[in-house]
Design a binder for these strands. Structure first.
Lengths: 246, 246
DNA sequence: GTGTAAGCTTGATCCAGGTCAACCGAAATG
DNA sequence: CATTTCGGTTGACCTGGATCAAGCTTACAC
């Protein structure tokens, strides 16, 4: 449901350090830049960093000074209530950005955790702001990225506010599939990086409900599930689930 | 729960047309600007517009070219699913911005409807972008506003994903109260501009459940309700509702 | 390898909130 | 002023998903 990016294929060949050579650049920030502008962009990224599965990229409350572009890997962001309740606010994959929520208060307002070994680029926010004062295209693209995040969140609100359990899971699978496709991976077959509990938290359901819905979808022939391995057999079946009433 | 602004009091005296004289300016966009910068800001606003209760400011799908600052009045934004289901994504009051979601696709992605007679300023987005390339403070403030919207949405996701009916309504009332306070109105007494059904849609509940929760709060002495008129009698009572488990 | 823990599935039961329905009050309309 | 309509309240009942519980599978530690 909430689209996060929609660009074509990526060959995962050579990886150099420069932004101007980053094959994820279409997905992260700039495109349509001149050669000169592309070169100046390389100043933008200060650090690359690898994270092991389970490691935090940042934690709620930490001072904010950079946003992060995911080069490879998979993340979740979550918010914790004082009483221990957790809400997963999103799952992010290669080519997507993390940390936009921190701009408002200059502190991060959620936790970002790697769900598999990952690699990120840190983009110091003040540098991004000054560069985007000079490069119109960059500025505009950044605003679009922030706005897209707002639209995505509205999609999640719709999902949590009006959909029933199976619709939510169908929407979730279709969204993942669509994002994998945009990155040149199979749209029909993928490994989930998150647990049933994390999916449940994101969708406002308990893990048992998620598990039951997976089984139901399998019985109906929409998907084949084996633990974290998912194969989508009938996209239209899943889509149909979402459309006619509840 | 999701804070939308936190600034001090406002005297609702003289209203002139210029942005530089707008007494809502702290809440909308710029502050900390030089006199010179303030004057240039007046170029930003192209149109003022009055809307009657029930009128749409914009509709989903319409081309986006401006964001809107609310001078007075009260709005809701909502998204409609093909099958007729509605999700209210937010309520906005004087001093808040509307339309940020439209930047991403250059089309509005939700409807904005006045819930009472209202007045807005249209801020052409391209002009905002070019001015914020020149005025650092404006740029930074705008980014904070967008980011705050994302944080607010995460708060709503938390609410929809993890809270039970009464917690949701308590959070909603406390949030409204806090925002009225920030605008110099009474924090303890106000009129709701929206129906029970709209509150329910926002909170992921049915109108009957909202109504019952209001009655329950009244029985317990936390509030006094009479239709749309609300008096908060025990803020701590409401806060307590939210904290200990569900 | 073997043991253990973490994650997943499935069944049985329960309850918060949805659904359906009746009624009431306020405010808009003629 | 009478009438209709819209929004709100309250009750009775029902159900989707939560909760509790048991067993299974996979992956990791030793």
């Amino acid at each position: 449901m909430p689209p996060q990016s929609a660009t074509s294929t990526i060959s995962l060949s050579v990886i150099k350090t420069a932004c101007s050579n980053c094959n994820l650049r279409e997905l992260c920030l700039p495109f349509g830049l001149s050669l000169d502008e592309l070169e100046r962009l390389d100043d933008l990224v200060s650090t690359r960093r690898r994270l092991k599965r389970g490691e935090h990229l940042y934690r709620s409350g930490m001072p904010f000074d950079a946003i992060y572009a995911i080069r490879s890997g998979f993340f979740k962001t979550d918010v914790l209530l004082e009483d221990g309740r957790e809400q997963v606010t999103g799952f992010q994959m290669a080519g997507e950005l993390l940390g936009l929520d921190g701009i408002s208060s200059e502190h991060h307002t959620c936790n970002a955790v790697a769900l598999e070994d990952s690699e990120i680029c840190a983009i110091p926010f003040s540098r991004l702001e000054s560069l985007s004062r000079e490069i119109h295209t960059l500025q505009h693209h950044f605003h679009k990225v922030m706005s897209r995040e707002i639209v995505r969140d509205h999609g999640v609100m719709m999902l949590l506010g009006t959909m029933r359990a199976e619709e939510r899971l169908a929407a979730f699978l279709l969204n993942l599939s669509q994002r994998f496709t945009a990155r040149g991976f199979s749209h029909a077959e993928f490994y989930l990086r998150m647990t049933r509990e994390e999916i449940g938290s994101y969708l406002g359901l308990k893990l048992e409900t998620v598990s039951r819905a997976f089984s139901k979808f399998q019985e109906e022939g929409f998907i084949a599930v084996q633990q974290k391995h998912i194969r989508i057999l009938d996209v239209n079946g899943l889509k149909a689930l979402m459309n006619h009433r509840a």
